Simulated scan of single mutants.
Amino acid sequence: MTTPTPALQITGLSKSFGTTQAVTDVNLSANPGRVLALLGPNGAGKTTTMRILLGLVSADTGEALIEGRRYAEIPNPARRVGAVLDAGGLHPGRTGAQHLGITAEMIGATGERVTHLLQEVGLTEAAHRRIGGYSLGMRQRLALANALLGDPAVLVLDEPANGLDPAGIRWLRQYLRAFAAAGGTVLISTHVLTEVALVADDLVIIDRGRSLLSGALDELTSAEGRDLEQLYLSITTAPTEATTHSTATTEVHTETETLR
């Protein structure tokens, strides 16, 4: 069985803001047909890692590649990678349909694609309402639709379940699983253990700016003889344990079949 070329590859990534070290030697890879969860407490460095991957912040050291290239090197990147880092940056005076229509015109997507995605994310009835009247969950759905306009092969989502009700979380989980099953690559950041257990194939645990543990989720829990909660808390709560793991990252490698 051939190991697929990673769709996302982050190696030796470090970034400081003044005297604050945001990430230190972060490493991860995400393969086509898989959902990778970047799991860690608030302030662990998850968002900074994603911002560097998407070219919004420059790294001090290391590299972050999407399909072998830096984000800035990808022609019309919305056609290859869709991202949601913050659903709050939507113009409150525009309607959902107007917002998607503007993005579609910029990246060369069709009006039919806009209509399809509004239906896909459950916003058809709210399409002509102003975004200022949307709930947080509706804004999350709209932001996801915006990320999908270019029919990308890769999704990068920061806390995508934030603001969704239980039905919305279930819908998102099913959508991401279907996206991966069709050969797409998904990277999500979260601190919600239950969702990781239900949606992720692979896992990277990050804390204090360092990637501490990575590998296939089922193999990690099996090898450690602990469930996900026990494994996560054993690594992220005790400073001595976190330091130990950060200096010698545990890697569990597994071969996966390329689906794309």
Rank of each mutant, 00 (worst) to 15 (best):
L144A: 03
A153L: 11
I169Y: 00
G137M: 00
P166G: 14
N146E: 14
P160A: 11
D165A: 12
Y134A: 00
L155M: 12
A161G: 03
L144D: 03
S135R: 05
A180E: 12
A147H: 08
P152S: 07
V156G: 02
R173C: 13
G163K: 08
F179A: 07
R170E: 15
D151R: 15
R139M: 00
L164C: 04
L172H: 11
E159C: 02
P160W: 09
A161D: 10
F179K: 06
V156D: 01
R173I: 12
Y134E: 00
R173N: 11
R173S: 12
R173H: 11
V156F: 04
Q140T: 03
A161M: 13
D158G: 07
L157D: 07
G163L: 12
G163I: 13
Q140I: 00
N162A: 14
Y134N: 01
V156R: 00
Q140V: 01
D158F: 04
A181M: 01
L142A: 06
Y134K: 00
L155P: 12
L149I: 10
A167I: 05
N146M: 11
G168E: 04
L148Q: 12
A147T: 05
D165V: 11
E159S: 03
N146Q: 15
V154K: 03
G163H: 07
Q174H: 14
I169W: 04
A147N: 07
L176W: 09
A181L: 03
A143T: 02
